[in-house]
Amino acid sequence: MNPIEQFEISPLKELGSIGAYHFIFTNSAAYMFLCVAILVGVTLYAMRGNSLVPGRLQSAVESVYEFIADTVRQSAGEEGMKFFPFVFSLFAFILLCNFIGLVPYSFTVTSQIIVTASLALLVFAIVIIYGFWRHGLGFLHLFAPSGAPGWLMPLIVVIELMSFLLRPLSLSVRLFANMLAGHIALAVFAGFVATLVGAGVWFVLAPLPLAMTIALLALEALVAFLQAYVFAILTCIYLNDALHPHH
């Protein structure tokens, strides 16, 4: 009944090692592949007819596409659409991992800090590389907004720089912490149910934590979607900085 146990990575197959690094096919990797399989499978199945009058599933896939496309357009402008595949990949990967994680006994890939940190650093790196590639040193205008009084400038630059550098941290920790805390809370309340059922007459109290678990599961479903959306929209906002640093 250890609520931390669900985050345990268990090796499924040893693949070998390069230097000091061991590469192992783990349960985490299996769930990542499951995520890919679901995305590819659902898309290909939904779009098999590719019909002008969509069926239910095709309609659902199209509305997810439109939803993310609208988000990208609103946050990063029409130019931002060149990053649409990237933002959609992030959204789809995080959303599917979050929802797969809600299935009891499954593993939540996004509750691993290394995964969320890698994704956040990827976003951060793309913003910096694209920003400098596109605007050269003009990208640095991002840290010195025009219209601020000169004597405030040093302070503003420091604050802007700090907030920029903290972005990957906040982006990764937000998703990681939400998933981790939610799953721990779920496991704790579910554990109460099991403990009460096994505790003689106290089993009459077992429905209370059970109801709590169900309510938490609903909340976690919301969080699963919301965190994927937050990650996607923040990515768009950061990409907007790289596209239009002059504000």
């Binding site: 061991h22 590469f23 096919f25 783990t26 985490s28 994704l119």
Partner: peptide, 11 residues
Amino acid sequence: PSQLLWLAITF
């Protein structure tokens, strides 16, 4: 390392 490898492959 394994997590990063599989993440890179799947993502």
